[in-house]
Simulated scan of single mutants.
Amino acid sequence: MDLQISGKKALVLGASRGLGAAIAAGLAAEGVKVFAAARSADKIQATDNIVPVAVDLSDAASVAALIEKLNAEGGVDIVVNNSGGPKAGPALGQSSESWVAAFQSMATSIFSITDAMLAGMIARKWGRVITIGSSGVVQPIANLALSNGVRAAVAGWSKTLASEVARHGITVNMILPGRIATDRVRELDGIKAEKTGASLEAVQEASRNEIPVGRYGKPEEFAAVAVFLASSQASYVTGSSIRVDGGMIRGL
């Protein structure tokens, strides 16, 4: 299938590893010029279609510098908002500083970047905004209060924005990953193992038993959904939150 996005330009945040890296590679394989952004941009290998860009989503000045650079390049057609998750912890006792910091890096920054790129998309009558969320939006994950709270706010923003820009040929969607085999998930499994006294292998086996397909997902499987949402064929899909979780979430 020709996804009809060769020659488009994309920004992928959090592109140095995990889901972001897989999405950047998937878009590049379709002929998209990808600005692959991350704090550790030096870890991203430049190719003909991948341009590493440094950004710290927790730093407003760094976000502003990224926006300026992208505007100088004529903007992008596809924005993939992929912010790292905050530290684990309960809702009870979280400081206001922790909430503000999490909202800045996971919400305010991507709102600002997306808003800045939308002017060009509107002018071109074509655009894609894809935001990576979490299954915690549907079913809150224990001990991830900051992520559950902030990503729920991002889901509300995404749904609202979808209605506002649809008439301009712009789609806005979220993808909700389940247990995908990334460094972040391994870190969370390690934290759970340490907290419960179980082995890492036991924690992972328990998680696999809760997933109908019986395994963790592969980053490239998740990326394939993002690449499709970025395509011209997905032009009638907007305002959606699509789960890529192997059937883990039991709710309708």
Rank of each mutant, 00 (worst) to 15 (best):
T131P: 07
V137S: 04
V225C: 01
Q139C: 10
E187V: 12
A234K: 13
N143W: 09
K8R: 15
V32C: 07
V237A: 09
I110T: 09
D245K: 08
I44W: 08
V185F: 07
G14N: 08
K43Q: 12
D77C: 03
V227K: 04
G74Q: 10
N71Q: 15
V154W: 01
E210F: 00
L188I: 11
I242M: 12
T47N: 11
R184H: 11
D42H: 11
L70A: 12
R250I: 13
Y236H: 07
M1D: 03
L70N: 07
A155V: 08
N71R: 13
A28I: 11
P90N: 06
S58F: 02
S58Y: 06
A65L: 07
D183Q: 09
S58R: 11
S235V: 04
F103W: 08
A101E: 13
A142G: 00
A54F: 05
A65E: 13
S163C: 08
R184V: 11
A166L: 06
W126P: 02
G178N: 06
G197C: 00
A29S: 07
G149V: 13
V80H: 08
N209C: 02
F35P: 13
V12K: 11
A152E: 03
Q94N: 14
E220I: 12
P212Q: 06
G89V: 14
G136F: 10
A91I: 15
K195L: 02
G74I: 09
